[in-house]
Simulated scan of single mutants.
Amino acid sequence: MTGEPRIPCGHAAQPAPAHSNDAIAHIADKASLRASLKAARRALDPAEKARRDALIGARVLAWWRGLDAAGARALGVYWPLRGEPDLQPLYLELARAGVALALPLVVAPDTALAFVEWVPGEAMVSDRMGVAVPAGQRLVERPALLLVPCLGFTAERYRLGYGGGYYDRTLEALPRPYTVGVAYAADQVAFAGGPHDVALDRVLTEA
């Protein structure tokens, strides 16, 4: 699934008051979607998951090969958790091709993500959120290209995450990176984007 350039969200409407019925319903709707998507991932057969992950990896690799040489030198990736597509074989292939990989790092609550250099195979530890990061944390500038895991996504390429808002804050800073959402095709859902949501530039699935 691909799309046109990023669509800013909430450009016409003002944010709903924090305690309005609409805002409460919006939060409840996203919570319900998250619960449903998490359950579906837990129920996914491991062999089927591996098949889908391999297909997604192939699609991401094809996208990367279509980039110009300068634009393909660095890539922000993610360490899979909670049933997210596992693209580690792809990361190894990209590293062998000379791509500088970076993993996100949570440095504090309610802040943008930092990024650290990562070489597949190096020693890893858990960060404050329980996510694997390199033991030797070598901070780098935020890459201009990011693979962003999605718990869910809409036809308009708005991302549904886990509710922490880390990627939202990361994408606020200009110039924004080019973002490629990674998800399963069955993760496509419908919800109204919030005033701070930014549409992904592209979403790649196994389909």
Rank of each mutant, 00 (worst) to 15 (best):
A112L: 04
A97G: 13
G181T: 07
A108K: 02
D168A: 09
A183L: 13
Q137K: 05
Q137Y: 03
A108M: 06
R138T: 13
A112Y: 02
Q88N: 14
P177S: 08
R142V: 00
D187A: 15
A183D: 06
V189L: 12
G165N: 10
A97T: 11
G98Y: 10
D86E: 11
R176C: 12
L92N: 12
G76I: 05
P104H: 07
Q188N: 03
L94T: 06
D168Q: 06
F191L: 06
R157D: 01
V133S: 03
A132S: 04
E172H: 13
V125P: 01
C150D: 10
R169H: 11
Y178M: 05
G161Y: 08
F153Y: 06
L90Y: 01
R176Y: 10
V148F: 05
D168K: 06
V99H: 07
V133E: 05
L81C: 15
P89A: 02
V116K: 00
Y158R: 12
F115Y: 14
F115D: 06
G161P: 11
V106M: 15
P177Y: 04
Y166S: 12
E141C: 11
G193S: 02
G76S: 10
W79K: 03
R138I: 14
A70T: 07
C150L: 15
L113G: 01
G98P: 05
P109Y: 04
L105E: 03
P89Y: 03
A144P: 00
A186M: 03
R82S: 14
V189F: 09
V189G: 08
A185V: 10
A135S: 09
R176T: 11
P143K: 05
E93S: 15
P80Q: 12
R159H: 12
V148S: 09
V99T: 06
A114D: 12
G83M: 04
F153C: 11
